Amino acid sequence: MVIEKEPQTKGELTRLAIEDAAIELFMEQGYHATTMRQIAERTELALGGIYNHFSSKEEIFQAIILDKHPYKKVFPAIIAAEGDTVEEFLHNAAHIVIKELKSQPYYIKLMLIEIVEFNGKHGSMLIKEIAPKALPIFEKIVKSRKNLRVTNPALLLRSFIGMLLSFMITDIIISNSILQKLMPKNVMDNYVDIYLHGILKPEV
């Protein structure tokens, strides 16, 4: 697995501290209610000091979306994921991604802020980072299985991302509810099976 290089300069450390402070504030009071002054105070910087690193609150948010995205940790693990079949590989890959997303629960909430506040405008930057690493994985899947309903790797990638996001979002929505208590222990495997095969049994 590729290990991320630790930041070496004081400027890099300060930049990451600003991002971490902003995440805390966005989670506590929302994006709209958070000010640059509050972020500076949480980072223990003068207001002018924060502008040495970011020109605006939106620029901080954009940096968080790109710098904190779990794909930097996830993709090396997905590439190394084992599985004798496409089904096994996708099950293993889904577990890897969900485990990482659950270790950073704030990220899904940040993506919801991205949709509500910015109408997804930073999504193209994120996809630009992700697509070159992800598409070869799904191209390999398409080539290895001749009976796939979907033969477009980009569409297959989009549907896989959609499945993972829907799992995480509904997991938040049903938490502490009767639905959560009724879920099977292997809910993730069941979810991936629905993604792979649908909800209907094949007709005999």
Rank of each mutant, 00 (worst) to 15 (best):
M1I: 11
M1Q: 09
I3K: 12
E4N: 13
E4D: 11
E6R: 14
Q8I: 06
Q8G: 04
Q8H: 02
G11W: 07
G11V: 08
E12S: 14
E12I: 08
E12N: 07
L13M: 15
R15I: 04
R15A: 11
E19H: 04
E19M: 15
D20T: 05
A21F: 02
A21H: 05
A21E: 04
I23H: 00
E24H: 05
F26H: 01
F26S: 02
F26D: 00
F26T: 00
M27H: 03
M27A: 05
M27Y: 04
E28G: 01
G30L: 01
Y31L: 01
Y31I: 00
Y31A: 00
H32D: 07
M36G: 10
Q38R: 08
E41R: 14
R42V: 01
R42M: 10
E44S: 13
L45D: 05
L45E: 02
A46K: 12
G49C: 11
G49K: 09
Y51F: 15
S55H: 13
S56E: 09
S56T: 11
E59F: 10
E59A: 15
Q62K: 15
A63P: 00
L66V: 08
D67W: 01
H69N: 14
P70A: 07
P70F: 09
Y71W: 12
Y71N: 03
K72Q: 12
K73A: 14
K73M: 13
V74K: 04
I78H: 00
I78A: 03
A81M: 08
E82L: 05
G83I: 12
D84L: 12
D84Y: 03
N92S: 13
I96K: 10
I96A: 12
V97R: 06
K99T: 14
E100Q: 15
K102Q: 15
K102Y: 06
S103H: 08
S103C: 09
P105G: 05
P105V: 00
Y107G: 03
I108E: 04
I108K: 03
K109D: 02
L110S: 00
M111T: 01
V116C: 06
E117W: 00
E117I: 06
N119P: 02
G123V: 02
G123H: 03
L126I: 10
K128N: 13
I130S: 04
I130G: 01
I130D: 04
P132M: 07
P132L: 05
A134R: 06
A134N: 03
P136G: 06
P136E: 07
F138D: 04
F138W: 06
E139Y: 05
V142G: 05
V142S: 05
K143T: 11
R145N: 15
R145S: 15
N147E: 14
N147A: 11
N147K: 13
V150K: 07
T151W: 02
A154R: 07
A154F: 09
L155H: 07
L155M: 13
L157F: 14
F160M: 03
G162S: 09
G162A: 07
M163F: 04
S166L: 11
I172N: 01
I172P: 00
L179K: 08
K181D: 15
L182S: 15
M183H: 10
P184A: 06
K185I: 08
M188Q: 14
D189T: 09
V192Q: 08
I194Y: 14
I194P: 02
Y195A: 12
L196D: 09
G198V: 03
K201V: 06
K201G: 06
K201L: 14
P202Q: 05
P202V: 03
